[in-house]
Design a protein around this nucleic acid. Structure first.
Ligand SMILES: NC(=O)c1ccc[n+]([C@@H]2O[C@H](COP(=O)([O-])OP(=O)(O)OC[C@H]3O[C@@H](n4cnc5c(N)ncnc54)[C@H](O)[C@@H]3O)[C@@H](O)[C@H]2O)c1
Ligand SMILES: NC(=O)c1ccc[n+]([C@@H]2O[C@H](COP(=O)([O-])OP(=O)(O)OC[C@H]3O[C@@H](n4cnc5c(N)ncnc54)[C@H](O)[C@@H]3O)[C@@H](O)[C@H]2O)c1
Lengths: 228, 228
DNA sequence: ACGAAGCTGTGAAACATGTAACAGCGTTTT
DNA sequence: AAAACGCTGTTACATGTTTCACAGCTTCGT
């Protein structure tokens, strides 16, 4: 329940699905979208697995969570599988997302999430800086953080991203949770402490870069395939 | 070898360390820095563990990788432990990092990595847009991507971050690897396919937000402590 | 029509990771 | 001075995740 080795699961029907499976399903779906777009009709597990950088066995196992069976001869029908994964992953309706902190990172995130993901839209921004509040950013209204409760309630927002300075992150998170947010994506480099029924994901770019740098100096740590 | 459930390890002396351990050590060190800064001299495993949102057992176990033993009565001496983790994690010398793609995200990353991490510095930026090339960004020179090989060699760069559009990411990655980069942090939403001796970490914000949204709608999936 | 080929789905084994339990040891208490 | 305490390091156990291995289809070639 910490840094995401083993963690939250969500019950679905009878079974329970781990975060890792969810992430991979999301990835598969994205690849399927691209395939569909490029006109591919059928795909085999080993092809899809290669694109996702996963073994075919794992892909097939992950797909067991979805109600769809491929044909041994044709493989999976791209659009059908995509649709099936969607049925598993997608919300019944569009989900509204809030973004808190309209600084360097916040603005980049705005730009990024603009057109895509019709089911997941940033519908409100928050900041504390008077200069950034009560305007329209890419067509999305920005509010002072003190209005969180009202806005969340009015717009039915349960998901938020936090992109404020580390020092402010915990207090912002508390405010958001009080305002009804149930699930958070935090970019500030502090570990948030929140009630256990709130889902929190940390994207800690600083730590990740340190990690990448660390593994850059390894004496070739990857598996060597047997040669005989 | 895939989405980071089970993965790369780095040999160190006799033992081998998993990515998850490395990430947690980095986190512990950051917390120790803050503690040292605030004047704390000693810390117990349960305190440090709480800040890192980890169990004390796990913390102690992680620390087994570092050559330092705490006192049962005082706990760990903050500055010593910090130093010891540093000895484990840090490069012998400052590590140079390149940033490829100076768009919305690239600029935000620049701002973020400016003052911090003296051991890890962005010393070169690359782009393909003539308007963004051959200038100074926050005191850091930017080059056309075609100069990658020369610049990497001259500056001894082995670590790079990729923040270019998805369509360009694979080709940029190939170029970088050819130019000598050994370890990559990729923000574009494509899974890079690279030789196995290159370390690649993906930060896929789109997928992560989808995941967070998914778990926002769970019927309270967290563990319930026994009640009798 | 039959066998070979090549894929899927899945039970069972192997592996990695996290959790619990405990032995040892300074410090404080009585 | 001895016993009790509370914390550390480590070993043993439990859980979660991936890999292996194989049975069952469906087509294709002969
Ligand atoms: N910029 C990056 O690439 C990057 C990378 C990794 C992590 N981060 C983290 O993301 C966070 C934001 O980074 P940034 O570069 O955008 O910083 P920034 O200073 O550019 O922006 C921070 C924004 O948050 C607002 N803010 C401050 N206190 C607030 C509060 N209490 N409530 C609401 N809004 C508040 C500020 O007004 C500002 O607009 C930081 O924690 C940083 O560590 C940023
Ligand atoms: N902006 C975000 O918050 C965000 C979030 C998640 C992921 N991403 C991903 O990060 C990447 C960059 O996002 P962005 O918003 O900064 O995009 P952007 O369009 O603002 O910037 C992309 C930059 O890359 C440069 N570029 C294009 N092709 C190149 C090449 N072959 N070599 C070198 N440079 C090249 C462009 O000139 C531009 O400066 C995208 O893949 C995006 O999906 C961005």
């Amino acid at each position: 329940m910490a840094i995401k080795g083993t963690q939250t699961r969500r019950k679905l029907g009878k079974k329970t699905v781990s975060e890792l499976v969810v992430v991979r399903l999301i990835l598969y779906r994205r690849i399927l979208r691209d395939l569909a777009f490029s006109g591919t009709r059928y795909v085999f597990s080993h092809q899809l697995a290669a694109s996702a950088d996963v073994t075919p066995e794992q892909l097939r196992r992950d797909l067991m969570n979805v109600r769809y069976e491929g044909s041994p001869t044709r493989g999976y029908e791209v659009v059908v599988l995509e649709e099936r994964i969607g049925a598993f992953l997608d919300p019944p309706t569009t989900q509204a997302v809030a973004l808190v902190g309209v600084g360097n990172l916040g603005r980049a995130l705005f730009a990024y999430f603009l057109g895509r993901r019709p089911l997941l839209q940033i519908v409100a921004a928050f900041d504390i800086d008077p200069a950034k509040v009560d305007r329209l950013l890419n067509g999305c209204p920005s509010y002072h953080i003190s209005e969180a409760r009202t806005v969340m309630r009015d717009k039915g927002i349960y998901v938020a991203m936090i992109a404020v300075p580390a020092a402010a992150a915990q207090s912002v998170a508390d405010t958001l949770v009080e305002a009804g947010v149930r699930s958070l994506l935090n970019f500030a480099d502090v570990r948030l402490r929140l009630p256990p029924d709130v889902y929190v994901e940390h994207i800690d770019i600083g730590i990740t870069l340190e990690k990448v740098a660390f593994f850059a100096r390894r004496p070739a740590a990857t598996k060597v395939p047997g040669s005989p």
